[in-house]
């Protein structure tokens, strides 16, 4: 409210402020995920446990692909192609769900228990990450609904851009988690 009163004489670049704020939030989250990764290396060193490698590479490819579709959605709305953006968004959501199911399948079939050290870090890291994926899917669904109501345009689409940035960030986190858990 106060900000609105003053918009007249304080021409701050509000979009830039929002963008920088979001980046700082990612920065802060990076520390959170970084600490979880450090905990994994602290407890296990650079030893690898047995995991379903095919599943790992599969869900990683799916999440990375969803990042590409999310980028396409943003590009589409920047060119005012709402219908196309909608399809890309729905594709992203679908891939996000597939990823989440993949993690769930891995949980259900894991050969280790959560009561031992590797299981502890594995379930914690994938769990915290999956929570971010699901919240990302939720946010994408919300912006998709608003897009369907015709709210965004090439001039004003910050909620889409912000949500998609968040989606990319979650993807980057997995790009680090995947080798940490499966490959190292």
């Amino acid at each position: 409210m106060a900000a609105a009163t003053h918009a007249a004489h304080a021409p701050h670049d509000t979009l830039r402020i929002k963008r920088a704020g979001l980046w700082l939030f990612f920065f802060s989250e990076t520390i959170l995920f970084g600490l979880l990764m450090s905990a994994r290396f602290f407890l296990e060193g650079i030893e690898r446990e047995h995991l379903d490698q095919a599943l790992g590479v599969g869900i990683t490819s799916i999440l990375v692909t969803s990042s590409v579709t999310a980028y396409m959605a943003e590009t589409a709305i920047e060119h005012d192609r709402r219908g196309e953006a909608m399809w890309w968004l729905l594709g992203t959501i679908a891939l996000g769900f597939v990823f989440a199911f993949g993690v769930g399948y891995e949980w259900a079939t894991a050969e280790f228990s959560r009561h031992e050290a590797f299981g502890t870090v594995f379930f914690t890291m994938t769990g915290v990450h999956a929570g971010h994926v699901l919240s990302g899917v939720g946010l994408l669904a919300l912006v998709a609904i608003q897009l369907g109501r015709g709210r965004f345009s090439s001039k004003e689409h910050w909620p889409i851009s912000g949500t998609i940035m968040y989606w990319h960030f979650v993807d980057i986190v997995w790009i680090f988690f995947y080798p940490t858990l499966y490959l190292v």
Binding site: F42, L43, R114, H115, E116, A117, G119, T124
Partner: peptide, 13 residues
């Protein structure tokens, strides 16, 4: 959740 971050007996520290 009965995890084992700090339980030395099951690999925690």
């Amino acid at each position: 959740a009965g995890m084992s971050f700090f339980n030395a007996e099951t690999g925690g520290d």
